[in-house]
Simulated scan of single mutants.
Amino acid sequence: MTRQIETHHYVTRLNQDFLQCAVYDFDDSHDRLINVEYIVSDKIFELLFPDEQKLWHSHAYEIKASIWVNPQIPEMIGQPELQNLAKNYGTSTCGLMVWEVICAEHGIDATRRYQGDNELQLKTRQIRVLRPDFPMG
């Protein structure tokens, strides 16, 4: 992955097969709502029409590659939920222009490479070692 920014997902589980996430760009008083993501189970995803499925993305890669981390939850406790989320699919309401602005603010340069020293970004390589058995999707 050549582009990566830190985002904060505040997740509400509406039922076993459906979650809703408010996505913010920071975790402080300057944060902005930048996206709303809807997450469905693989069971619901399989019921969607093929054209609709194209608008959804698997969370398997995000979790296996340690792009999705839960910094306040010990890995051992969070593993079961992450394994479940790896089988789910998400769709977003954010447009490309918004992401371009956010990337610039978070140290993603014109070549789409991270040019910063954010601890969470740099820690993802270490976390990947802890998730060798997660499916990649």
Rank of each mutant, 00 (worst) to 15 (best):
M1E: 13
M1K: 05
M1W: 12
T2V: 05
R3H: 09
Q4L: 06
H8L: 01
H8S: 01
H9R: 07
H9Q: 10
H9A: 10
Y10W: 08
Y10P: 00
V11Q: 08
V11K: 01
R13Q: 15
R13G: 13
N15M: 03
N15I: 07
N15V: 04
N15R: 01
N15P: 04
Q16W: 00
Q16K: 06
F18S: 00
L19G: 09
Q20T: 10
Q20V: 13
A22Q: 11
A22H: 10
V23E: 06
Y24A: 00
Y24Q: 00
Y24F: 14
D25P: 01
D25S: 00
D27F: 08
S29K: 09
D31C: 09
R32E: 15
R32K: 13
L33H: 14
N35I: 04
V36Q: 10
V36H: 12
S41V: 06
D42G: 14
D42P: 07
F45T: 06
E46V: 08
E46D: 15
L47V: 03
L47W: 04
L47P: 03
L48D: 06
L48N: 08
F49M: 12
P50M: 06
D51H: 11
E52T: 07
Q53K: 12
K54D: 15
K54A: 15
L55K: 11
W56N: 04
H57I: 06
S58E: 04
S58T: 07
S58V: 01
H59D: 12
A60S: 13
A60C: 11
Y61V: 08
Y61L: 09
K64H: 13
K64M: 07
I67Q: 05
V69G: 01
N70T: 15
P71H: 04
Q72D: 15
I73C: 08
I73F: 02
P74N: 10
E75C: 03
M76P: 04
Q79I: 08
P80G: 00
E81N: 00
Q83W: 11
Q83Y: 11
N84M: 09
L85E: 13
A86L: 06
A86H: 05
K87Q: 15
Y89E: 02
G90Y: 14
G90V: 12
T91S: 07
T91G: 01
S92T: 14
T93E: 12
T93H: 08
C94P: 02
C94D: 03
L96Y: 14
M97L: 11
V98F: 05
E100Q: 13
C103D: 11
C103F: 11
A104L: 08
E105W: 07
E105D: 12
H106K: 14
H106C: 11
H106E: 13
I108T: 14
D109C: 02
D109E: 09
A110H: 06
R112W: 09
R113I: 06
R113M: 08
D117P: 00
D117R: 00
L120H: 12
K123Q: 14
T124F: 05
R125K: 10
R125S: 14
Q126R: 05
Q126C: 07
Q126P: 02
R128D: 03
R128H: 03
V129E: 07
L130M: 10
L130P: 01
R131S: 05
P132N: 10
P132H: 06
F134Y: 14
M136T: 11
M136Y: 13
G137I: 04
